[in-house]
Simulated scan of single mutants.
Amino acid sequence: MGNFKSTLKKIPSNPSKKGRSKLKEPEPELEPEPQILVEENKPKYYLSNRGDENLDRQHFNHFFRKHIFGNNFSAPIGRRLAQGECKVLDVGCGPGTWLLDLAHKYKNVKFVGIDIEPTVYPNEIKPGNINFYQADIFDGLPFPDNEFDFVHQEIMALIIKADQWNFVISELIRVTKPGGFIELVEYIAPDDNGPILSKIYQTHYDLCLKRGVDTSLIPHLDNMMMSQNYISQVNKDEKTFIIGPNGGKVGITILEIIISFIMSDIATEDISFQQGIDKEEHKNRFKNLDEELKGTSPKLKLCRFWAQKNDN
């Protein structure tokens, strides 16, 4: 999961399509600072990269998504990767798990990952066909037009504000070569929820709106992509599964991922404040959630939206 600081830098009002500034090489830091994104008078963004537990969750989440789909991508780029001599970009790469997984398999492909926080991805021990750079998508991607055969962005919907999506997608398309592919991967909020899970997701939705993030837009990313230049068709690869014990091993696994996210210290603080309860009550609620999920089958969707850039 990426961690761009959307509140720190302003989006260019008229971004140039002639390429971007040079990549910023990350400076070494002895101790990573907590990644708590704050806007004045607005709630914190609590998907933190701080600490081994949060990084482990991101690694684990990658392999969960890979298991659900049975592969690392849905766009028909596999043959081109196998042939080598192509370039792949991962935007908001976080600890770089997706790139590392692919780089070991496709040794003749050049992989590039960008994230605003340089302390989360490996810069010393990594395959020679990967480079990581510090960059902020909201300033525009620091690459020239038509640079990559495949541009990938995963689980950024809790970071990108409603009025930033068109710019972000246009940048992904801009740096993709004609005939290359763009792929977005996101979860869609579950339905058929019981009262406890409904309350949790409604609170999360409300907190996101206070930061300008509208998670109700996620199911419509295909329409946003279609509205862009150079895109004439968008494909959607969707998997649905049940949260909790009624979903088998997959359901139990995704429940663990969800709980680890909303039980973090930052999430606990924000959710309990939003609901007007103390932190201990927020934590105790999950004892009842286990019981609720035995009698309900909330359905969560994981979607890949992918498109090929037109030649003209």
Rank of each mutant, 00 (worst) to 15 (best):
L89S: 09
E124S: 13
N131G: 08
A135F: 02
D145Y: 08
P122K: 02
K107T: 09
L81V: 03
K126T: 03
I137H: 06
I130S: 14
A82K: 15
L99R: 00
V112G: 09
K87M: 06
F111P: 06
L99E: 15
G140C: 09
D101H: 04
V112R: 06
D90A: 01
F111L: 09
I130W: 04
K87V: 02
P127W: 00
I130Q: 05
F143S: 02
V109C: 08
G94V: 05
F132Q: 01
G94N: 05
Q134D: 09
L81C: 11
P118K: 11
R80Q: 14
D149K: 02
K107M: 04
Y133W: 15
V109S: 07
F111A: 06
K105C: 12
R80M: 14
G84M: 06
T97N: 06
N123Y: 14
H104I: 04
D101M: 03
A103R: 07
E85F: 13
F111Y: 10
L99Q: 08
C93G: 11
H104D: 14
F148Q: 01
Q83N: 15
K87A: 15
D145W: 02
L102E: 13
Y121V: 05
N108F: 01
D145C: 12
K105H: 14
L100G: 09
F138V: 00
E147L: 00
F111D: 14
D115Y: 00
W98R: 12
Q83F: 11
C93R: 15
D90S: 08
I137F: 04
F138Q: 05
P95D: 14
N108C: 13
I125H: 12
L99S: 13
Y133H: 14
G84N: 02
C86D: 04
W98A: 08
R80T: 08
E124P: 07
Y106T: 04
K107I: 07
D90K: 00
K87S: 15
Q134S: 03
F148A: 10
V91N: 06
E117A: 07
F143T: 01
D115H: 04
G140H: 03
Y133L: 09
L102Y: 12
A82Q: 14
R80Y: 06
V112S: 15
L102D: 06
E117C: 12
N129C: 04
V109Q: 05
L81F: 07
I125F: 09
T119I: 04
K126Q: 13
V112N: 13
F111V: 02
P127R: 00
T97R: 10
H104V: 11
P122E: 08
V120I: 14
K105W: 00
T97H: 07
Q83P: 03
V91Y: 02
N129K: 05
P118S: 15
K87N: 13
N131A: 14
L89N: 10
K107S: 12
G84W: 07
E147C: 13
Y133M: 12
V112P: 00
V88G: 11
W98P: 03
L81K: 00
P144G: 10
D149L: 01
K105N: 06
V88F: 06
Q134L: 10
